[in-house]
Design a protein around this nucleic acid. Structure first.
Lengths: 351, 351
DNA sequence: GCGACGCTTTAGATCGATCTAATTAGGTTG
DNA sequence: CAACCTAATTAGATCGATCTAAAGCGTCGC
């Protein structure tokens, strides 16, 4: 019924051509803005399109021309605000290029990612922006190359033979650690969570590096749960026991938000008794009080960068692989403060 | 080069059929899991598909069968966490139905929404989930019907002749106001922002209604800016001057997050000197301290509902229009507290 | 032995655009 | 006036699947 209806009143290029008194081929040229048609013919055809309410049929065009003006975006997580901002950046650029985003969520599960990439191929996307699920290996990139499916890796990198847009986490981490040490902190913890991937490893390595460079012990790396509420409940890991410290660098702002809440619950005054440095500086971080010191990683810009890489590659498939590594920037606010001595801070308020 | 490459090594159904020693038609039946083929033929064809690395070509199928297994989602804003959760819900259901989401962002701009809907039509989506931009009128729904493009309205409603999934904002608002009045508050403000649309109007009307029902003055409706940081800076509107009140209901959690920060900056202790009720209860609200009392509107569930409505309609186009109006639920936490008298709260700490 | 019937398979048309190669019209040139 | 060129247009094949209508084949009943 539906398809009958659709078929019936669908206006095709042939209808337009007839109405304008030209051939299908000419009408097609007009649509594609070819310079080969005369101005008057063009006008006639455009008028006919108006009159009949013609709608271009990508599906048909794609079949013949083998391009769909569609790109696939595979993201491991839709709820994390970081990815949302990333997505917003991607969408802006892709839209401006006259293309459209097919969005899927891998949930950071390899098997699912595999399924979804097949689905993308079936849908004939012109290219893919992928934030690889943890555990993805290089062979994926090779396979995509065999399939002639242009790929941009974003945030996480599994191969150098392929475009990549991401963040210089090492640099960001050094800024964070330097900042805390300059404030006099020596017991600095690193609160991590989530699946292990290149961007994870990069941050951990850089933390070790930065700490050792300052002659500090980088051993205090603590895993927290993934859910916001559960993170809050593990704040005690940092204020007492073997993980006790005077400050924490957070893997991302989700961790920072959680710990901020958890520390509040413990009666610890952030920015006085304890210092907290976030990572990403997402929009929501602005609502935190005391204001969160955070390493801004500019997710929107990264998204725009990734999309631009892809658009460029579609235009010139033979380009050498490029990297777009954005330098993060530490935003110092209220949640990090000068170290107040062994007896100054925590002991007073904790518990 | 690219397209050459793609063309060259693309395996078609015809290749599969030949390799399996059957006809194109039979191979097609196998793919579509038709019960008409014998088990051995099916096995042969499936084997051939394996051997050759066949990938289904939706584009071709769509052209003939006039369905794309693709749906369009038009959202006014990607950064607001509410929409992100909504999107996550939609994605889950659509994915489970074997379809794929084409995501676009209208920015709440009518003209853009128009462009995007055309683009959706060109891409041949099977249906659209739309959160109509402010100012959209009923005629849009009629036009979509003419185009035979199934539509589900989500969150905002412009027509009753069309499926709709949303929230019973009125009920939520009554819960919020009732809660505050039961705590003894009489000066209750409503902090609004953003574009004016049905869901906006619904909340405003319900606020008036609820206040009048309790014999209170519903005149204190105050607009705040859209950006989080700017919202924080307008917190003073509620603590002093003509808008001064003892409690605020927030249009959504973005406003609540902003005001929470702003009140903190003013030295007002939320949950003691001043009460705050949010709306939506998005995930990030969990990170707020004191914990935010908020009217949960279950965006993920709404998204799932909207997608389900659409999937059902695709299966049965002649269904009467349905409404899925979810009842929100007040979650009482720390940010709302008993009224402490005219001289109790604000005067002590404000300024 | 013949038609009927169920089960399986298939040839060929078809969807709506693009692309190739050829055609037409009109002007220029030797 | 023929040869040639340029600009504009077009017929017809093509992309890779689906769908229709019909055919092949084995069995059954009469």
């Amino acid at each position: 019924m539906l398809s009958e209806g659709r078929k019936k009143n669908r206006v095709t290029l042939l209808d337009v051509a007839r109405h304008a008194g030209v051939s299908r081929a000419t009408a097609s040229l007009v649509i594609r803005k070819s310079p080969l048609v005369s101005t008057e013919t063009r006008a006639k055809v455009e008028m006919a399109m108006q009159d009949l309410g013609y709608v271009y049929n990508m599906g048909a065009a794609r079949l013949r021309a083998d391009r769909s003006l569609t790109i696939g975006v595979v993201i491991p997580n839709l709820i994390n605000p970081f990815f949302t901002e990333l997505l917003a950046g991607i969408e802006t650029v892709i839209d401006a290029a006259g293309m459209v985003v097919i969005l899927v969520n891998s949930g950071d599960v390899l098997a699912r990612q595999e399924t979804l990439l097949t689905r993308m191929r079936e849908h004939g996307v012109d290219g893919v922006i992928l934030c690889p699920a943890a555990g993805t290996d290089m062979s994926l990139v090779e396979r995509m190359a065999e399939w002639d499916l242009p790929l941009v890796q974003v945030l996480r990198r599994v191969s150098d033979e392929c475009d990549y847009a991401g963040v210089d986490y090492g640099f960001g981490m050094h800024q964070a650690v330097d900042h805390l040490t300059e404030l006099g902190h020596r017991d600095i913890a690193f609160a991590v969570h989530g699946p292990v991937h290149s961007a994870y490893q990069e941050r951990v390595d850089a933390f070790r590096d930065a700490m050792e460079l300052r002659g500090l012990d980088p051993g205090n790396i603590i895993r927290v749960p993934n859910q916001l509420a559960a993170i809050a409940q593990s704040a005690h890991l940092f204020t007492a026991g073997p993980g006790r410290s005077s400050s924490v660098v957070c893997f991302n702002d989700v961790v920072a938000l959680g710990l901020s809440a958890g520390l509040y619950d413990l009666g610890v005054e952030i920015g006085r008794d304890f210092s907290l440095v976030g990572f990403d500086d997402v929009a929501d971080a602005e609502a935190l009080r005391p204001r969160l010191t955070s390493v801004a990683t500019f997710p929107v810009a990264i998204g725009e960068g990734a999309a631009t890489l892809l658009v460029d590659r579609l235009a010139q498939p033979d380009l050498a692989p490029r990297k777009l590594v954005k330098a993060p920037q530490l935003h110092i606010r209220q949640s990090s403060a000068r170290w107040r001595g062994t007896n100054g801070g925590l002991s007073k308020n904790a518990g």
